[in-house]
Every structure is written in C-alpha cells, then in structure tokens.
Design a protein around this nucleic acid. Structure first.
Lengths: 196, 196
DNA sequence: ATAATATATTAACAGTGTTAATATTTCAAA
DNA sequence: TTTGAAATATTAACACTGTTAATATATTAT
C-alpha cells in the first residue's frame, strides 16, 4: 500500500513535469492533454488515471510555480537591506520572474482556471503572493515609522495592482515595447509611491 | 457597385451584432463561429465570406465596444466639475462599465487577440483609452497647478495600472468578493493618489 | 500457472476554427 | 421570360480540443 503511494506520486510527477515544461516554454496556449501525455511518455487517457481532469493537473503546476517564484525572489533579495529598499528589490525580482516565463504569468493572472474544490483558496494565494513576499519589509517600515499602518494598507494593494497591471500590459499587450522601458516605468511608479 | 457596399456592410453588421450580444451576455468563452452564425441566422461558413477569420470579426466588436464605453463614461461625467473630481468620476464610470459587462473586460484586457494587421494600434488604443478619457481633466489640473507635468505623467500610468489591476482581480478572481468592496478599495487608492 | 486486479491504450463523442466542394440564389442579356 | 453566368450560402470534411467507456495489457496474489 505504501509502494502504491510512491508509484502514484511518481506518475503524477511525470505529468506535472511535462506540463510545467510546456508552460515554461511554449506557454499556456500550447497546453493540451495529448501534448502533456506525449511528453510524459504515456497515452492521453492515462492522465485521467492520476488527475480528475486537466484543471487539477494545472492547479498542481500553479502550486509548484508559486513555490519556485518565492525561492527565486528570496534568493535575489536576501542581501538587500530591510524596509523600502527590500520592497523595491522584491518587486523587481517578482517582475523579472514573470517576464522570464510569460506562460506562468498567463497561468497565474490571465487564465480562467474554472471552479474546482480548492480553486478559491489558490486564487487568493496568487492574489496575495507579492504581498506575502513583502510582509516583513512592510512591518519593518511601520516599526521605523517610515509609513503608518493605514498607509501601508493602501500601499500594499496599490503596489500589487501596479505590478500586475504593468505586467499585464507588457507581457500581454507589448506596452511598452521593451523590458527595459517596462522596468523604468515600474521604478518611477514605485519611487513615486515609496520615496517621500 | 454601391448597393454591394451597403449589402455587405449590412451582412457584416448582422454578424457583429450577434457576436456583441454573446460577448455582452455570456462572455468571450461562449463565442464560437457556429454560435455567432446561428444567432445571425446564417450558416457558420457564411461568416467567412465577410470576415477573414473570427479574429477580424472580434476586432470589429472591440472597436464598437470602445466607442460605447466612451459614450457611457462621457454621459455619466459631464456634469462633474473639471479636474480631480472629474478624474475620479471618470474612473468610477469606467470601472462600472466593465463590471457591468465582464465579457468586454476579458475581451479588452485578457484575451490574446493574436497578431493581425491593425492589432498593435488597436491594442494601444485600449491601453491608452482611460488616459484619453481623462486627458482634459489632467490638463486642467496642470493649468491650476494642482499637479506638475512630471507628476501627471506618473499618475496617469499609475491610475491606469491601478484600475486595470483592480478590475482584473475583481472580475477575474473575485477579489474582493463584492462590487461595493471593490469600489471602496478603488476609492481609497485614488484618493491616496490625488488628494494631497 | 492461473485468476483477479490494477493500469494503460484505443475508439468514440461533442465541441472548436477553417477550407474546399457543392448547392442555391441573384441578376443581366437574349 | 428564359437562359447562363456570377455571387453568395451551405454542407462535408479536416485537424484540433477535453473527456469517457470499452478494451487490451501488466501486475500481483493465490
């Protein structure tokens, strides 16, 4: 009974791995049951022995990518000093991650991952992810009297919206045209908000 | 030769009308060539006699909706005094329009309307639409020395990102859960930006 | 080795956009 | 008004999509 467990988990892993490769590479539009199964080395119907449907598989991918994103940002930011500089660094790294993998941005913010059991909670995790990453830095700011608790409450959402909006227009609509421009605009925005 | 013109335009109109109804009602996910043609009272292949492909038809819908949105906002705002109050009213009306028709929001900001001739320019029109609506009000603010030209340049993008991000999370991810909450958050954000 | 169970695969269905071949309608000339 | 040509509409088909039921193949226990 325990070997079953590990075997099943391994099989799921093959499909998840395949799906993640496609999402990272070609993006969400190239995802299909047959495509994933091919890459995993199985028939398309086999996937349904391990996942309720395609959505369930994709949800597992989302969780994985979220952890991956957290690691990426944490690694890039640890040396930066706490407070405002840390927040700026987190936002930069966060954007960098999604620009590097546009398919993951689409997966997180664009695709209508339709209703399922744990859908709502996972969607909430995505919506508050950047916020969570900045949590300590915000606390630091409050303790240092850099911002009031009230202002922080507003600024958190403001930055979340600003970053998501900026990424939406750049990744999805090529506005602005270059990544450099995109970052420059973002820096201006965040400086306007945080430097006072 | 002129009757051909008017006939063709009329036929296109039938399909556009049908597509717009579906987009307004069921949203983008319910759009299909057969669905549109059914509603227009023709076979699915007939559509291809008047549009290069489905994308072309949808692009025409986008243009229509954009004009419609402009009219909606203008109508709701004309009595509001110029400057900051006008900007706030415009943003409120703009959000209201898309909340009323979530399918149109998806069409404008979510769907990957893939490459075509006039794609880029149309996408740019969408990205700058809210900006255009606020244009006069911003000029008024500068003339009254309420904001510097520099700050206005930043604030315009900030508001565009804030509104789009807020709508993305609300319409697409149900965050926050109620429209009232959504508006309240938005008001806080915009007040923070514009009241000084 | 055989019977029972678990797993993998193929076939099929209803849906999608799109095109080519056909059917129908429109309309000008005889 | 009838005939022939051009324009327009429709059906059939293709390659996709997700998903399920029926079938084939492995694995395991007796």
């Amino acid at each position: 009974m325990e070997r079953k467990e590990v075997q099943t988990r391994r099989m799921k892993g093959y499909f998840i791995q395949a799906a993640k490769e496609i999402l990272r590479g070609e993006g969400f539009r190239s995802i299909s049951v047959r495509n994933i199964a091919d890459r995993a080395g199985y028939s398309y119907a086999t996937l349904y022995n391990y996942f309720k449907d395609l959505q369930a598989l994709i949800f597992d991918c989302v969780s994985d990518f979220q952890d991956e994103c957290t690691l990426f940002v944490s690694g890039k930011v640890q040396k930066t000093q706490q407070g405002v500089p840390r927040i700026k660094a987190i936002v930069r790294a966060y954007m960098q991650y999604f620009v590097q993998y546009p398919g993951i941005f689409e997966l997180f913010f664009i695709e209508k991952l339709s209703d399922s059991g744990s859908r709502q909670s996972l969607m909430e995790l995505i919506a508050t992810h950047l916020d969570q990453l900045c949590s300590d830095a915000w606390d630091f700011c409050v303790q240092e009297n850099r911002f009031s608790r009230e202002d922080v409450g507003i600024l958190r959402i403001q930055i979340r919206n600003m970053v998501t909006g900026q990424l939406l227009f750049y990744i999805h609509r090529r506005t602005p045209e270059s990544y450099q421009e995109c970052v420059e605009v973002m820096e201006k925005q965040i400086n306007y908000l945080l430097d006072n």
